[in-house]
Simulated scan of single mutants.
Amino acid sequence: MECLYRHHLLDKELAITELISLFYYKSPRNFYFEGETHDFWEFIYTDKGQMLITAGDQQYVLKAGELAFHCPGEFHAVQAWSQTPANFIVCSFISNSEHMPWFTHKILPLNGLARESLQTALREAGGNLLPEKKPGSVPLEIPGRLFGSAQLIQNSLEQMLILLYRQSRSVRIQQRAESYALLKNNRQLAANIKTCLEDHVHEKLTLSQIAQATGYSVAQMKKLFKNETGSSIIDWFIDLKLDEAKRMIQEGDLNFTQIAASLGYDNPHYFSRLFHQRNDMTMTEYSRSMIEAAQND
């Protein structure tokens, strides 16, 4: 009796048909890519450090271990975050799968098997498959590839996409962009406070006056400045005054009492004690050290 075997169809629900680029990049602290728009998919994965990403009209910080997609037609740019170096992977590809739009405007954690899949694809591509802009040219073969490299790259990237699609953990870019906007606002506030203190270093300045100038309450202002700088506003102001005192001592035009008065201190003895506490030397010792340093030069 003849046995009939039923065949199982193997559908490809997430398929990559062509690879544009796949490379690993160690960026310098001043890295900046002005951005581009193209008609294929691209993702960026931060392996180490953090990157500031622009996607359309939104900006957000992509942290280590996170991956974000740019859909076809979306303007995107990338730069170093806080002037610190970072390592990242970029992959651009063509996919017409109906499920790809699910990845739009999502930030996804990459770990476990999904991360291993990306590593396999990168290794098979040699780690430096860079994009080539040659309109109308025929598709390129992967340089120096081993037997089956192209298929392994395709399978590994598709496996990564499937695993990412299955997981429920993701962050909407809008949420991260709002967090970045708040962070940017807080940094600007801290910068405004620093400028205000620098502009009034020769005056007495109260927290209420600074708050009035910045438009924040005293409590809000103190908390935000502490979070951004690790210092209180008063301590920052004192350090500015002491730095200015050092500059004035080096100039030698005023005596110590006059310097204290110039910086808003009515009691020169209190200012001298403050200088000693924060610099581990008296104003006289500092003046003497500057004279000796000048003579040695």
Rank of each mutant, 00 (worst) to 15 (best):
P85I: 08
F75G: 08
Y60D: 01
A80K: 00
Q79S: 12
G126C: 07
A121H: 06
A86G: 03
E98F: 11
E116C: 09
A55I: 04
E98V: 14
T104H: 12
V90Y: 02
T120D: 09
A55G: 07
M100H: 09
P101D: 06
K106Q: 14
G112M: 10
F69L: 06
A125G: 10
T84I: 08
A80D: 00
L62W: 01
F88G: 00
I53H: 01
C71V: 12
F103A: 10
L118K: 03
F75P: 09
R115G: 04
K63P: 01
F88S: 00
G73P: 10
A68W: 00
W81Q: 04
T104A: 15
Q83G: 11
I53N: 00
T84A: 15
H99S: 13
G112N: 06
L62K: 01
C71H: 14
S117P: 02
F69C: 04
L67F: 05
F93T: 04
T120Q: 13
Y60N: 02
A68H: 05
G56R: 04
N111T: 11
G73N: 11
L108C: 09
E98C: 12
M100W: 12
H76P: 08
I53W: 00
D57S: 15
H99Q: 15
Q79I: 03
A86T: 11
A125N: 08
V61G: 06
T104G: 11
F88R: 01
P72R: 05
P101T: 08
F103V: 06
N96A: 15
G56N: 08
P109H: 09
L110W: 03
G73E: 10
N96L: 14
A77S: 12
I53C: 05
A80I: 02
I53L: 10
P101M: 06
A80C: 06
P85F: 07
H76V: 07
G126I: 05
P85D: 12
E74V: 15
T104E: 14
T104D: 14
L52H: 05
N87R: 12
E124T: 04
P72I: 05
T54H: 07
A114F: 00
F103D: 02
N96M: 14
L110Y: 03
Q79E: 15
T104K: 14
I94S: 13
A121W: 04
P109G: 09
D57K: 12
Q58R: 15
L62Y: 00
L110K: 02
N87P: 01
L110M: 11
R115I: 03
C91H: 01
L52G: 03
P101C: 07
D57F: 09
H70P: 03
S95K: 08
A68I: 02
F103G: 01
L122V: 08
W81K: 04
E98P: 00
